[in-house]
Amino acid sequence: MQVAALKPDTKQVKIEVKNLTKRFGDLLVLNRINFHVAQGEFLAIVGPTGCGKTTFLNCLSKLIPTSEGNIFIDGEVADPKRHNISFVFQEPTCLPWRTVRQNVAYGMQIKGFPAAKINERVDFMLDLVGLTETQSLYPNQVSASMVQRITVARAFAVDPDLLLMDEPYGQLDVKLRYYLEDELVKLWQTLKSTVIFVTHNIEEAVYVAERILVLSNKPTNIKAEVNVDLPRPRSLIDPDFVAIRKHVTELIRWW
């Protein structure tokens, strides 16, 4: 399927990050970061180790307050109580005392969705990620990749304005990773959510994203922006793919 490059100027701006700055005492971690994300865009963020990716995500999700600047969703200051923000963490965050089905429903229950809608939506999501048959099992009874699929399904289920993903597949082996990346792209294409995907795996970023932001070392700023204008499904050995991957790798390696 051909997906055209979705440049922010040709599509409605959904997320706007203005002047985002975060200091811990004297330590400047995030230095005046500005960027925007279009409605339904899949944005990947890569950067060198220790560049403040986690702090960056915590600011975006409003888990920690920013020192200066802010993040705006549809022109309003982002607020987890008003906006649908979902966060898929690197470590598994399934609730061990809930079944797979109840876990997928959790985000919607917190948001106070009506029961009938939750039921319908959970059925839909379980089907989409292939967990229908395991829905009544507990997280410790399913495999590690399924556990991460539960959290991804839970995140997409609330129909998020902004979906943040913090290296969700970082702890899985390569084969499962490819499989889940394909599934993630399929979910995104079906549900048209706006996704910010943080990873340190450049190949993964080029594989899933429409646009890649490359972060600099601390104090972190956006060093470069790379559009990934490749048809899907993408091939890891396509010369264009390899060219972009090498370009991003160079950007991270040299400063």
Binding site: P80, F87, E91, L95, Q109, I110, K111
Partner: peptide, 24 residues
């Protein structure tokens, strides 16, 4: 604590976090 963060990003109130995470 990661579970609490997860609930916070969904906009959970203190009471919701207490009821759905802390007690279990």
């Amino acid at each position: 604590p990661t579970l609490i963060q997860m609930a916070r990003t969904y906009g959970a109130s203190d009471w919701q976090i207490f009821k759905t995470l802390c007690v279990p």
